[in-house]
Each structure stands twice: as structure tokens, then as C-alpha cells.
Design a protein around this nucleic acid. Structure first.
Lengths: 211, 211
DNA sequence: GTCTATACGATGATAGAC
DNA sequence: GTCTATCATCGTATAGAC
């Protein structure tokens, strides 16, 4: 009997397992078992295990980047009208807040967060190529906006500071999974809004410091 | 013929391949071929593939942590004598500088840097457990020293800021491998000293900001 | 003690018949 | 879409040469 959501069930299972165990450590058999579809269905719908990974990434990354780019463009448009340069904090917020807010959207989104963390750690991998291609327009726009907001910084300094800041973000997106080394009195599960501000306090100070 | 450096050759090959391709994507056969040893030599000398990974990690991590801890203790001892609280910058430097200086020590050390990046992205993996066990004493000491240096921060805020800062570091340790998305006019290969300062400017500002 | 050659059972991805 | 067969490769174990 035909099951119209076969593709989605495969995508969900693959997202979960790729995130939890990594691409190479996940077998097609475990994916198709979890999705309750036949082993060969992956090849039929996606062509290969690699193509399945790409589909998993794109399904969530593109909508997320649309939100991030939309918020950034709205901020820049507003600043044109008011003729005020947008602040570094507000620019970074358009990137950071939609990202951290993924956590509120359930376990599936958390899986995706972990998957991105893995991708960023495998520089030479196939997934990295896919990821970079889909991030580049947004990154260029972000870099450009920050250059206007922080005219005192050299391109070199700005470049590295952007990566310091986004590196922090990618690191903490993975951190909630590692429950070791958490001192007493520290709450790992903060409300998203508070966490966004906690992060922006840190990142903006580092971006804006003059030296 | 006896080859007294068989273990080292296996370790070198494993470090290189684990770093480049990841643990699961690396086969024992590719390691033993690169090391020009017999397939069974890994099991003979290390017991299993997992035990080999642990040996690869420990060989470099323990000496590195000895250097970092030694510099931190020296700083704290000097501050006791002069009765001055060490600065956040100097505390962080004891962690950051030996880490970034690994790059100067040749291609092998660069492999290890990439491997650590991979480990940090696989929260639930075996390697993470090994890594955490060997990092914990140093992390506790670092956290304690920073708490004294930044008495105005809550434990919660300090905890997250330390992870923001070290997250930046782990991210950029991997970055040199990804040559995409580097704007013109940006030099990826900076001298280590300059890069340490560039990083500390960012991280210290973020650590110290009051709000 | 070290190392080699070889074999084993499990699991990988994929292709082709249906 | 599914089922089954196929074949490569995996980590590991073992027997024996040096």
C-alpha cells in the first residue's frame, strides 16, 4: 500500500540518527527500521545515503536562513528610513535569536541543531560543502552589515571576530547535550530570551572592543 | 625484523586519518596501510580500535594540559606573592596560547587540533568521554581562577561566558581547514602571537562586560 | 615478545527482479 | 514501491613464523 509520507518519515528518522550518532556511524538499516520503511526506499526516494543527508540539511536550513535573512533585511530597511546605522547587537540578534529559538520548536529541531554542530566539525566532509553553499549569501550580507556598523575595525579583525562570535554560538548549540562538567548552581536550561541576551552581552562586547 | 617504532607509526597514521576523516569513517586497514604495518598490529599493541583512539588523544592532550596547568599555576603563585589578583586576560592566556601555539609544531599537531574539533562535536561519543576525563581538572582550576578574577559575575553567567570563549577557540581551531567564504583582504595565516592577542581582545571583553 | 597471513561473522550500500 | 541477492568492506580473532 502506498504511504504518502514515506519521504518525510525517512527524513525524520535520518535527522534524528545522523544527529545522535553522526553520518558514518548511522546505517541505512537503522534509518529505514526507525521509519518503518523498506531498506531500499532510501535509494528510491533520494538516490543515495549522501543525497539523503543533503535533503535532511536543506529541509531545515533553508527556512531558517530565510527567517534570519528576512529579519536582517527588515532591520537594514528600517535603518535606511530612520537614517540610523543599526547596532551590532541588533544585527547579531537577527542571526542568533532565530537559531537559539529552534530549541523551542521541539525535539526535531534540537536534532537539527546537533546535526549542524557535527557538520561544522567535519571541515572536509560532503555535508560541509552543502552547508557552506546554503550559508554563503546570508554570511556575506551579515558581514557587510557589520562592517557598516563597526567602521573602526579592519576587515581582517572584523572577519575573525565574526567567526569568534559564531563559533561561540555553534559550540553552545551542542553544549546542552554534554551534562558533564556543569558546576553546582548552574542552570543549563535557561529560557531562550534570557539566553539570547546572555550570549549577545558577551558577543557584542567582543565585537565592539577597540584595541 | 623488529620495528621498535611500530606503535608510534600506528599512532601517527591513526591521528592523521582520524583527524581527516573521523573515527567511524577511518578503517583499521587504512591506518595499517599508511603505517606500513600488518592489520593485526593494532589489535596486538592497543587491543581495539577504540583503545587506539584513546591512545591517540592522550598522547598529545596530557602534555598540552600539563603546559596549560603549569602556566596557570605559575600565574596564580606569582599573584599570591605580589598580592594582586591575576587579570582575566592573563588567566585565559594560559589556556589559549599553548593551544594556538600547537600550530607552530608541524603538521602532526595540526592533525590533533582537527581531531579535538571533531571530538567536541560528537557529544555522546566515546572520544568525548575520554576527552572530558582528561580536561576536567584543568577546567575546574580555570573556572575557579576566573571566579576570583571576575567577582562581579554570577556563577551562572561566568559558566556560560567561559564556554562562549572556549567555544570560539575550538571553532577557530578548525577554521583554517575551510578555505571557503574568506573575503578578500583577509589573511588566514596570521602569526601566532598576533592571533592570540586578536582572540584575547575579543574573549576578554566578552568575559568582563558588565550589564 | 613481535609481527604476519588469513579467516570469520557482521554489516555496509546498492542493483535488479518483481 | 518492495523484496532479495550480491558483493565489498568492516573490526576482530587466531594460528603460527620469526
Amino acid at each position: 500500500m502506498s504511504q504518502p509520507d514515506t519521504k518525510q518519515r525517512i527524513l525524520n528518522a535520518a535527522e534524528h540518527l545522523f544527529s545522535r550518532d553522526g553520518y558514518h556511524a548511522t546505517s541505512l538499516r537503522s534509518i529505514t527500521t526507525m521509519a518503518t520503511v523498506n531498506l531500499a526506499a532510501v535509494n528510491y526516494h533520494f538516490g543515495s545515503k549522501e543525497a539523503l543527508l543533503e535533503a535532511v540539511i536543506i529541509r531545515r536550513l533553508d527556512p531558517l536562513n530565510e527567517i534570519r535573512l528576512g529579519q536582517l533585511e527588515a532591520l537594514l530597511k528600517k535603518s535606511e528610513e530612520t537614517e540610523e546605522v543599526p547596532t551590532c547587537r541588533n544585527i547579531l540578534r537577527t542571526f542568533v535569536e532565530p537559531t537559539l529559538r529552534l530549541r523551542q520548536q521541539g525535539a526535531d529541531a534540537e536534532d537539527f541543531i546537533a546535526l549542524i554542530g557535527r557538520i561544522l566539525a567535519e571541515p572536509r566532509g560532503l555535508a560541509m560543502t552543502i552547508f557552506m553553499a546554503h550559508m554563503e549569501p546570508l554570511m556575506n550580507r551579515l558581514f557587510q552589515a557589520l562592517a557598516v556598523s563597526l567602521p573602526g575595525l579592519s576587515r581582517q579583525t572584523l572577519f575573525w571576530r565574526v567567526h569568534f562570535a559564531l563559533g561561540s554560538l555553534s559550540h553552545i548549540m551542542r553544549y546542552h547535550e554534554r551534562h558533564a562538567m556543569v558546576p553546582e548552581g548552574v542552570n543549563i536550561d535557561m529560557p531562550v530570551d534570557a539566553f539570547v541576551d546572555l550570549f549577545l552581552d558577551f558577543a557584542v562586547a567582543g565585537m565592539e572592543v577597540t584595541q
